[in-house]
Protein backbone atom coordinates (compact mmCIF):
# COMPACT_ATOMS: atom_id res chain seq x y z
CA UNK A 1 0.00 0.00 0.00
CA UNK A 2 1.35 3.40 -0.97
CA UNK A 3 -0.72 5.23 1.61
CA UNK A 4 0.27 5.36 5.29
CA UNK A 5 -1.25 2.65 7.43
CA UNK A 6 -3.41 4.96 9.48
CA UNK A 7 -7.20 5.08 9.63
CA UNK A 8 -7.40 7.87 7.04
CA UNK A 9 -4.87 6.08 4.88
CA UNK A 10 -7.10 3.00 4.82
CA UNK A 11 -10.23 5.09 4.31
CA UNK A 12 -8.69 6.92 1.38
CA UNK A 13 -7.45 3.63 -0.04
CA UNK A 14 -10.94 2.13 0.05
CA UNK A 15 -12.31 5.27 -1.56
CA UNK A 16 -9.75 5.00 -4.36
CA UNK A 17 -10.51 1.30 -4.81
CA UNK A 18 -14.23 2.00 -4.99
CA UNK A 19 -13.84 4.85 -7.45
CA UNK A 20 -11.38 3.12 -9.77
CA UNK A 21 -13.22 -0.23 -9.74
CA UNK A 22 -16.48 1.57 -10.36
CA UNK A 23 -14.91 3.60 -13.16
CA UNK A 24 -13.79 0.43 -15.00
CA UNK A 25 -17.35 -0.90 -14.75
CA UNK A 26 -18.81 2.39 -16.00
CA UNK A 27 -16.52 2.21 -19.01
CA UNK A 28 -17.73 -1.32 -19.73
CA UNK A 29 -21.37 -0.36 -19.19
CA UNK A 30 -20.97 2.55 -21.59
CA UNK A 31 -19.63 0.11 -24.17
CA UNK A 32 -22.73 -2.06 -23.70
CA UNK A 33 -25.14 0.84 -24.06
CA UNK A 34 -23.43 2.61 -26.93
CA UNK A 35 -22.14 -0.26 -29.04
CA UNK A 36 -24.42 -3.23 -28.21
CA UNK A 37 -21.31 -5.40 -27.83
CA UNK A 38 -22.04 -8.66 -26.03
CA UNK A 39 -20.62 -9.19 -22.52
CA UNK A 40 -18.19 -11.81 -23.88
CA UNK A 41 -16.64 -9.32 -26.28
CA UNK A 42 -16.37 -6.66 -23.60
CA UNK A 43 -14.67 -9.11 -21.25
CA UNK A 44 -12.14 -9.91 -23.98
CA UNK A 45 -11.54 -6.21 -24.69
CA UNK A 46 -10.78 -5.50 -21.02
CA UNK A 47 -8.67 -8.63 -20.76
CA UNK A 48 -6.59 -7.51 -23.73
CA UNK A 49 -6.35 -4.05 -22.18
CA UNK A 50 -4.88 -5.67 -19.07
CA UNK A 51 -2.37 -7.66 -21.13
CA UNK A 52 -1.41 -4.53 -23.06
CA UNK A 53 -1.01 -2.41 -19.92
CA UNK A 54 1.22 -5.06 -18.38
CA UNK A 55 3.27 -5.47 -21.56
CA UNK A 56 4.12 -1.78 -21.78
CA UNK A 57 4.76 -1.65 -18.04
CA UNK A 58 1.99 0.72 -16.97
CA UNK A 59 -0.02 -1.84 -15.07
CA UNK A 60 2.25 -2.27 -12.07
CA UNK A 61 2.40 1.37 -10.99
CA UNK A 62 -1.37 1.54 -11.58
CA UNK A 63 -1.97 -1.56 -9.47
CA UNK A 64 0.20 -0.16 -6.68
CA UNK A 65 -1.97 2.93 -6.55
CA UNK A 66 -5.42 1.51 -7.29
CA UNK A 67 -4.89 -1.96 -5.79
CA UNK A 68 -8.11 -4.01 -5.91
CA UNK A 69 -9.76 -1.27 -7.97
CA UNK A 70 -7.90 -2.54 -11.01
CA UNK A 71 -6.92 -6.08 -10.07
CA UNK A 72 -10.43 -7.35 -9.25
CA UNK A 73 -11.87 -6.35 -12.66
CA UNK A 74 -10.84 -8.67 -15.50
CA UNK A 75 -8.01 -6.23 -16.36
CA UNK A 76 -6.11 -7.68 -13.42
CA UNK A 77 -6.59 -11.19 -14.80
CA UNK A 78 -5.09 -10.10 -18.13
CA UNK A 79 -2.18 -8.39 -16.42
CA UNK A 80 -1.43 -11.46 -14.29
CA UNK A 81 -1.43 -13.60 -17.44
CA UNK A 82 0.99 -11.27 -19.18
CA UNK A 83 3.18 -10.91 -16.10
CA UNK A 84 3.44 -14.67 -15.69
CA UNK A 85 4.23 -15.08 -19.38
CA UNK A 86 7.02 -12.48 -19.20
CA UNK A 87 8.52 -13.90 -16.01
CA UNK A 88 8.53 -17.47 -17.30
CA UNK A 89 9.94 -16.35 -20.65
CA UNK A 90 12.78 -14.65 -18.82
CA UNK A 91 13.50 -17.80 -16.86
CA UNK A 92 12.86 -20.61 -19.38
CA UNK A 93 13.17 -18.83 -22.73
CA UNK A 94 10.39 -18.10 -25.22
CA UNK A 95 8.56 -21.38 -24.57
CA UNK A 96 8.01 -20.23 -21.01
CA UNK A 97 5.75 -17.48 -22.35
CA UNK A 98 3.16 -20.12 -23.20
CA UNK A 99 3.15 -21.59 -19.70
CA UNK A 100 3.73 -18.62 -17.42
CA UNK A 101 0.33 -16.96 -17.84
CA UNK A 102 -1.51 -20.17 -17.15
CA UNK A 103 0.56 -20.97 -14.11
CA UNK A 104 0.11 -17.55 -12.55
CA UNK A 105 -3.66 -17.53 -13.04
CA UNK A 106 -4.12 -21.18 -12.21
CA UNK A 107 -5.24 -20.42 -8.64
CA UNK A 108 -8.35 -18.58 -9.71
CA UNK A 109 -9.15 -20.66 -12.78
CA UNK A 110 -8.47 -23.96 -11.03
CA UNK A 111 -10.70 -23.08 -8.11
CA UNK A 112 -13.36 -21.76 -10.48
CA UNK A 113 -13.39 -24.96 -12.56
CA UNK A 114 -13.49 -27.24 -9.53
CA UNK A 115 -16.10 -25.17 -7.73
CA UNK A 116 -18.26 -24.93 -10.86
CA UNK A 117 -18.08 -28.67 -11.26
CA UNK A 118 -19.17 -29.26 -7.68
CA UNK A 119 -21.92 -26.65 -7.89
CA UNK A 120 -23.27 -28.22 -11.07
CA UNK A 121 -23.63 -31.52 -9.25
CA UNK A 122 -25.27 -30.02 -6.17
CA UNK A 123 -27.58 -27.36 -7.65
CA UNK A 124 -29.72 -27.11 -10.73
CA UNK A 125 -30.64 -23.92 -12.57
CA UNK A 126 -34.04 -22.39 -11.86
CA UNK A 127 -36.49 -21.16 -14.44
CA UNK A 128 -37.23 -17.55 -13.65
Amino acid sequence: MLLPQTWWGYALNYLIVFASGGACCIAAQLLIIKTKLTPARILVIFLLAGIALQTVGIYEPLAAALRSGICVPIIGFGATLAKGAAEWAAEYGPLGAFAGGLVETAFGVGVAVAASYIVSVVFSPKSK
Binding site: I32, K36, P39, P125, K126, S127, K128
Partner: peptide
Protein backbone atom coordinates in the same frame (compact mmCIF):
# COMPACT_ATOMS: atom_id res chain seq x y z
CA UNK B 1 -42.52 -22.81 -25.81
CA UNK B 2 -40.58 -22.85 -22.58
CA UNK B 3 -38.58 -19.98 -21.14
CA UNK B 4 -35.77 -22.08 -19.69
CA UNK B 5 -35.45 -24.40 -22.67
CA UNK B 6 -35.50 -21.54 -25.20
CA UNK B 7 -33.08 -19.49 -23.14
CA UNK B 8 -30.40 -22.17 -23.14
CA UNK B 9 -30.78 -22.76 -26.86
CA UNK B 10 -30.92 -19.15 -28.03
CA UNK B 11 -29.16 -17.14 -25.35
CA UNK B 12 -27.22 -17.63 -22.14
CA UNK B 13 -27.36 -20.11 -19.25
CA UNK B 14 -30.22 -19.35 -16.87
CA UNK B 15 -28.07 -18.39 -13.91
CA UNK B 16 -25.72 -16.25 -15.99
CA UNK B 17 -26.04 -12.68 -14.82
CA UNK B 18 -26.61 -10.47 -17.79
CA UNK B 19 -28.69 -7.44 -18.50
CA UNK B 20 -31.11 -7.33 -21.38
CA UNK B 21 -32.08 -4.22 -23.24
Amino acid sequence: SHFAAAERQYRYPLEYGCQRP
